[in-house]
Design a binder for these strands. Structure first.
Length: 117
DNA sequence: ATTTGCTCAGCTC
DNA sequence: GAGCTGAGCAAAT
């Protein structure tokens, strides 16, 4: 299990209609934002690993190797993500770890870290 | 709005 | 190994 697998796994937990930042994934996986970009670029399983749900921390799109920013935006809109111009509007953008875990809980993913005996 | 310094995985020699 | 290139960030200007 290397860092790349961790990143892909985390990404698959993000529900439709939400978007995370490169920066957040970097903090969660213990690496740098640009490294996340590199992982996405070399992503071999489009769709299964939803690279289109990763954007820059100011809400602008960033890149998308499978079709360019146009396609990326379109996909997000189809998933219900709201835009203001070329930026994702605040509501669906997850920037910090706390909101990340909260969103996962609300969508029924298992978050429980310390199961107390 | 634009510039500046920092980052690190992957690719090339 | 050493050097370059980005699907980026935050702070200062």
């Amino acid at each position: 299990m290397d860092r790349r697998d961790i990143v892909y796994t985390l990404l698959q937990l993000v529900p439709m209609g939400y978007v995370v930042t490169y920066s957040l994934l970097a903090r969660l996986a213990g690496t740098s934002p640009r490294a996340i970009g590199a992982y996405m670029r070399s992503n071999k399983r489009p769709i299964i690993v939803p690279c289109h749900r990763v954007v820059k921390s100011d809400g602008s799109l960033g890149g998308y190797s499978a079709g360019g920013p146009r396609v990326k935006k379109k996909l997000l809109q189809l998933e219900g993500v709201a835009f203001e111009g070329d930026r994702v509007s605040g509501k669906s953008l997850i920037r910090d770890e706390e909101s990340f875990w909260r969103v996962l809980e609300e969508h029924g993913h298992i978050v429980d870290f310390d199961a107390d005996p």
